[in-house]
Design a protein around this nucleic acid. Structure first.
Length: 241
DNA sequence: TCATTAATCTGTA
DNA sequence: TACAGATTAATGA
């Protein structure tokens, strides 16, 4: 971890983030002590808060903001593993037996994170079955999604992968004023879809010509989501995760 | 505001 | 698919 952090202090009790696993499962037991164990970390847009290869000491929960999780590939190319929003967990793959992070994470906008040490989490997981169960469901989902993504990358054409990425961003982050509620560069789309920047640009302009999407600078809007979904589902690769 | 840097797009091999 | 160059947007002093 690097850079300057701003530390705030919000109790989980007063937290507005109802999607958070800690908020949902732990606070029901009237135990505000656990929420005092967290560290609140605020990071600016573009700031990296997990570095590949750094030792794992705990787990991050996103209180507010959006994040990308990536892994550096063979030729130094960045492969984006997933995007995450409020309430999601970051760094969980290293939580069990791994000693070092196999992924890096960067804030895509100003983000506030709640950080729990390995120790305090392990204790809570052992004593609170609801929390453990919720965590298990989360891990199962992640595994499912990551296997689906492997299929996507290995079996779809470039165009299908780009369309798939757009649909993924759409169902995860929804629209805001008609545009996707997450601004990504063409390079980031490429890194997620497993292709190059130029390919993404070309697919985007093709989709624009076909009136399936529209763009305004970095902002992208989906005109016809039904047709976009159809492109993927025709090949039976579309998974609503 | 202007200059510098980054991002986007197009042409071509 | 990859590279180079042109154009446009974003950033910072």
């Amino acid at each position: 971890m690097s850079g300057k952090y701003t530390f705030l202090a919000t109790s989980c009790k007063n937290c507005v983030n109802t999607e958070c696993l800690v908020k949902r499962s732990v606070l029901t037991e009237q135990d505000d002590f656990f929420s005092s164990l967290k560290t609140e970390i605020s990071c600016k847009k573009g700031q990296q808060f997990i570095i590949e290869g750094a030792p794992v000491n705990g787990l991050f929960f996103i209180l507010k903001g959006k994040v990308k999780v990536y892994r550096t590939g063979i030729n130094g190319k960045e492969q984006i593993v997933r995007f995450a929003k409020e309430g999601e967990i970051i760094g969980h793959r290293g939580f069990g037996t791994e000693e070092y992070y196999s992924i890096g994470a960067i804030a895509l906008e100003d983000t506030v994170l709640c950080y729990y040490s390995k120790n305090s989490l392990q204790q809570k997981l052992k004593s609170n079955a609801t929390f453990t169960y919720d965590m298990m469901l989360f891990y199962a989902n992640e595994l499912n999604r990551s296997e689906a993504k492997l299929k996507t990358i290995s079996q779809m054409t470039v165009r299908e992968r780009v369309v798939d990425s757009l649909l993924y961003i759409h169902r995860k982050f929804k629209d805001y004023n008609g545009f996707l509620n997450l601004q990504l560069s063409r390079r980031e789309y490429a890194d997620y879809a497993g292709t190059t920047e130029e390919q993404v640009i070309r697919v985007f302009s093709a989709l624009k010509k076909e009136s399936l999407i529209f763009t305004k600078g970095k902002k992208i809007g989906i005109t016809n989501i039904t047709l976009l979904k159809k492109e993927i589902s025709e090949h039976n690769y579309y998974l609503d995760l």
